[in-house]
Deep mutational scan, measured.
Amino acid sequence: NITAAIYDEIQQEMKRAKVSQALFAKVAANKSQGWLCELLRWKENPSPENRTLWENLCTIRRFLNLPQHERDVIY
């Protein structure tokens, strides 16, 4: 289940792992930094009809659900 909290989790994970938006986007969703920036802007007004947005957030959720040491190896 995806909630608005995922946006904060993304920010916290980037700080914790000391990774850039570009690197996080690449490893978590195989996307660009610009894409992640755009995604983070949706926090203010996520559209329930935007299926692509929710699919991408689900992809990021799966990455964030990995154990921390696995995420660190991927970075």
Rank of each mutant, 00 (worst) to 15 (best):
I2H: 14
I2A: 02
I2S: 02
I2W: 03
T3P: 07
T3K: 14
T3C: 02
T3Y: 03
A4N: 15
A4S: 15
A4I: 11
A5N: 11
A5V: 15
I6T: 05
I6V: 09
I6E: 01
Y7P: 01
Y7E: 01
D8T: 15
E9A: 11
E9P: 00
E9C: 07
I10M: 13
I10H: 01
I10A: 05
Q11C: 08
Q11V: 13
Q12L: 08
Q12G: 10
M14F: 11
K15V: 13
K15F: 12
R16E: 11
R16H: 15
A17E: 03
A17Y: 15
A17W: 06
K18H: 09
V19Y: 01
V19I: 13
S20Y: 05
Q21S: 13
Q21D: 02
Q21W: 14
L23R: 14
L23T: 05
F24D: 00
F24K: 00
A25K: 00
A25W: 03
A25Q: 08
A25M: 04
K26C: 01
V27K: 09
V27I: 08
V27G: 10
A28L: 04
A28V: 10
A29V: 04
N30P: 02
K31L: 09
K31D: 12
K31F: 07
S32L: 07
S32T: 14
Q33M: 12
Q33Y: 13
G34L: 12
G34F: 10
W35M: 10
W35H: 04
W35R: 08
W35L: 08
W35S: 10
L36C: 14
E38W: 12
L40N: 01
R41F: 13
W42C: 04
W42M: 13
W42F: 15
W42I: 14
N45W: 13
S47Q: 15
S47K: 12
P48W: 14
P48M: 14
P48H: 10
E49C: 03
E49W: 06
N50G: 14
N50F: 13
N50A: 12
R51G: 07
R51V: 13
T52I: 05
T52H: 15
L53P: 06
L53V: 14
L53E: 09
L53D: 13
W54R: 14
W54K: 06
E55I: 08
E55G: 05
E55N: 06
N56W: 05
N56E: 09
L57F: 02
L57E: 01
L57R: 00
L57T: 04
L57Q: 02
C58A: 04
C58W: 13
C58V: 14
T59I: 10
T59F: 11
T59Q: 12
T59V: 06
T59E: 14
T59R: 14
R61F: 05
R62M: 06
R62K: 09
L64R: 00
N65V: 12
N65G: 07
N65Q: 08
N65T: 12
L66S: 14
L66T: 12
P67K: 04
P67Y: 07
P67R: 06
Q68V: 12
H69A: 14
H69M: 03
H69Q: 04
E70T: 02
D72G: 12
D72T: 04
I74H: 02
I74A: 12
I74V: 09
Y75Q: 01
Y75M: 14
Y75P: 01
Y75F: 03
